[in-house]
Amino acid sequence: MQFRETIISIKNLTKTFGTGHAAVTALSDVSLDIEKGEIFGVIGLSGAGKSTLVRCINLLEKPTYGSVIVNGQDLTTLSDAKLRLARRDIGMIFQGFNLLMQKTAQDNVAFPLTLCGIGKKESRKKALELLSLVGLKDKAKSWPAQLSGGQMQRVAIARALATDPSVLLCDEATSALDPATTDSILELLRDINRRLGVTIVVITHDMRVIEQICSRVAIISDSKVAEVGYSADVFRKPKTDAARSLVLPPGERLTGLKSGGELIRLAFDGSTSDRPVIAEMVLKFGQPVNIVYADTRVIEGRIYGHTIIRLPDDRDISIKMQSWLTEQEVSFTKED
């Protein structure tokens, strides 16, 4: 194990909106440690409390109880002025991009710098450097309305990085983008993480986002952290119902057929290279299997995802198939 340093430490965080009967507890006693330099994912269904959690990290939302320590500083104890200074070290991007629509791309990126009192010329110069970092140097003079969603998010990323933050918070940053654009934005985030060493916290409801860039993930369910672990582990062997329902949405679990042989779930965590395991198995045993559910993708030549198959009625063949899968080092679990 390499030495790890905690950069964000969330302790017993509780957030309640409203009072009395109308009170909504969005977060209930959440504790999490995020390590310096990692890409940490937070996933959960809509309304689980993800946005509230990330907004508590830069105190856009004031915790009802608990503390948020970033770079050794407990933000909940800071004065307004000190908090504003601390926020310069925490960039944030959003689902809706939130660009200033009446400013050019370059001035959007320069904006956080001018807020700190840095001169216009110097701010613009740095903004241009950041725009080239995100691949949009030629769009410096464009208005946000002239940019595509992916380009707007790139501008927003450049803007969030303007003050050289050590943390970048992303609240559903790719949820408004199409799959190809999502991939390119995730690629950019990974690149930024590697090149600049920025710690990134990614909030999403989409498991694919976690798979693609997060080293570790926390699953938020009903205002609580249900599970935290390495993405591959959580993805392959979800321990909690909350995790299972995210990895495999419940609607799809039921599309299975009532009768037939054993139902097993194959988990691909990237350790199997891209080869047609199921097809090979079918050919080898000369018996068809029924694919009940499949959600896999190939990333850098390795397979990630899940497939649920119904093995043949014949118990003998079913057992042989299972041991063959074990030989092939394909991990699977029995579904009920």
Binding site: L60, R87, M92, N98, Q102, P112, T163
Partner: peptide, 26 residues
């Protein structure tokens, strides 16, 4: 847009900066 104001808050803008440099120009 509320989101633009939030983004500015996340950058550490003061209330005055938000009024004069975000709300009015926007």
């Amino acid at each position: 847009d509320r989101g633009v104001i939030e983004a500015s808050l996340s950058m550490g803008a003061t209330t005055m900066q938000i009024v004069t440099r975000v709300i009015l120009p926007e």
